[in-house]
């Protein structure tokens, strides 16, 4: 089969969102967050206790899934290098909207302890839309759970709209991304 068929290389149309079921949709989305099991940095070590017996995020309806196609939430767990950012962008664009991004720790906010690193980015929201920030280095699982609760509230009230912002301002995000990813060997759009 033609390789081109495996991803869509065209700009996504403007998404309509809402309709009759909007209230039910938001309610269901808030209570069934599937997290893509992809750890970008040191913070993913805190996600294991969050999702297993001790802190049990499953009672909030959350689950880890192994593929971006089925996931709703992308967790940027800690510092993000340029090499990882490339993969993160692909993962984010392969997720089906509505989708949400949670940034974990100090590094995605302002570079954290890697603010002068030659390889870690300083501000995540220049490259991806972030819905919830969780501070700390690293945040404890309690803080992560609190962040997820906040995300649920935002979704419930229809304010977690980062994925819409991303599509509307895609060119702005692309310009920022291409500024640090010099060799763009990816399809233009791959969702």
């Amino acid at each position: 089969m033609d390789k081109k068929n495996y991803f869509l290389d065209e700009k996504p149309e403007k998404l309509t969102y809402g309709g009759v079921f909007r209230k039910i949709d938001d309610w269901a989305r808030a209570r069934s967050l599937w997290v893509v099991a992809y750890g970008t940095g040191c913070g993913s070590i805190e996600l294991r206790p969050t999702f297993t017996s001790r802190f049990d995020a499953e009672r909030l309806g959350m689950r880890m899934v192994g593929t971006p196609r089925q996931a709703d939430v992308l967790i940027i767990s800690g510092y993000l290098t340029v090499k990882t950012l490339k993969r993160v962008i692909r993962v984010y664009e392969q997720m089906q909207s509505p989708k949400y991004v949670v940034a974990l720790g100090a590094c995605p906010i302002n570079g954290g302890m890697y603010y002068d690193s030659y390889n870690a980015i300083n501000q995540l929201d220049l490259y991806l839309p972030v819905d919830v920030w969780i501070t700390g280095c690293m945040p404890r699982p309690e803080a992560i759970l609190a962040g997820f609760k906040r995300l649920q509230e935002l979704i419930d009230s229809g304010r977690a709209d980062g994925w819409k912002k991303y599509i509307e301002n895609l060119d702005w995000y692309r310009e920022n991304q291409r500024k640090i990813i010099k060799n763009w060997k990816m399809p233009n759009y791959n969702w």
Binding site: N110, G111, Y115, D116, A120, N122, Q123, K179
Partner: peptide
């Protein structure tokens, strides 16, 4: 490294 980081990844965001 600090100069490079500032030029490429932008200023450290406000606290």
């Amino acid at each position: 490294t600090l100069k490079y980081s500032m030029e490429k990844f932008g200023e450290r965001a406000p606290k």
